[in-house]
Nucleic acid binder design. Structure first.
Lengths: 152, 152
DNA sequence: CGTCAAATGTGATGTTGTAACATGCGGCGA
DNA sequence: TCGCCGCATGTTACAACATCACATTTGACG
């Protein structure tokens, strides 16, 4: 595979990539983590920890506490398998784990779907502006609320 | 006063400006709103609705419910007297009400203080990217988490 | 097999945000 | 003046989001 393609990966391919990335980070790919990732990956809008807890509970036929979900989501975010959408208090699967980007999320206020842009130039400028102001260990949060093309 | 200065306004001058802006928007400047704004304006870090409710309660010697605070904060945000910091679930007074900007907030993860930058070029690029992707009624959320110069 | 660390379960609790309806207050026309 | 109306605020309840502390399970490894 060539250097830097950004095809969205489908269900199982994406899970495979996630698994590889997680193991690569020295973490385990457990059933629970696989289930949570796969549920998260089916969402095209940011999913709250509680949404995920409900679906994973169904899938397993046994209550999974939000608590556990949060733990794993935190891990996913730390290892770049998922992103937190701050303006939605919710999470999205990273469709290309392994690639580091400062994602820009576009969230439709009407239908809730989120798309994401990787514009390293843009996010780089934001980073630069922050560092210019004396900030270090910078982590940009760039999200755009609005109306998507389908909801005009 | 000249066209577009951005001196931070101090306590009473800022409140005066806020009052003017609110009335200009066809809203009332009530005691409650004045109190909430003045409390918000003393913060140099994003203040949660609950923080504000506590302080305003003290100040008035009578419990003010978070509920009421939210209502007024929403009004402030709608009229550009205050901003919501999404990544902190909290609010900041706008130090120059009347000027419309897509603010960029820098929030220190260590001390919590927030500074803000107005870089219309940068935020304009974010807007443009979103509109390019078919989004309308765009409202950028640009925040940067990191460590401020004092906390290095 | 025993031990240890990591993962997950469980229950409690803290924080943030809304909904629904009641009350108060001031303006304005009858 | 009186009653009505619209807006602001009060009050109660609850929903949604997030974390803490501690118990139990699992599985890797000597």
């Amino acid at each position: 595979m060539a250097a830097h393609h950004h095809h969205k990966q489908g269900g199982s391919a994406l899970s495979d990539a996630a698994q590889a990335a997680l193991i690569d980070a020295g973490e385990q790919w457990t059933d629970m983590r696989a289930d949570i990732f796969s549920v998260l990956a089916t969402y095209d809008k940011p999913a709250s920890a509680y949404d995920i807890a409900d679906l994973v509970s169904q899938k397993r036929g046994k209550r999974v506490a939000p608590n556990s979900v949060y733990r794993i989501l935190d891990l996913f975010v730390a290892t770049n398998l998922a992103r937190r959408v701050e303006s939605a208090n919710a999470y999205l699967a990273n469709t290309h784990p392994g690639c580091l980007h400062d994602c820009i999320f576009l969230i439709c206020d009407t239908c809730g779907t989120a798309t994401h842009i990787d514009d390293d130039k843009l996010s780089g400028n934001v980073r630069a502006a922050a560092e210019n102001a004396g900030f270090a260990q910078v982590r940009p949060v760039i999200e755009v609320r609005g109306k998507c093309a389908d909801c005009d």
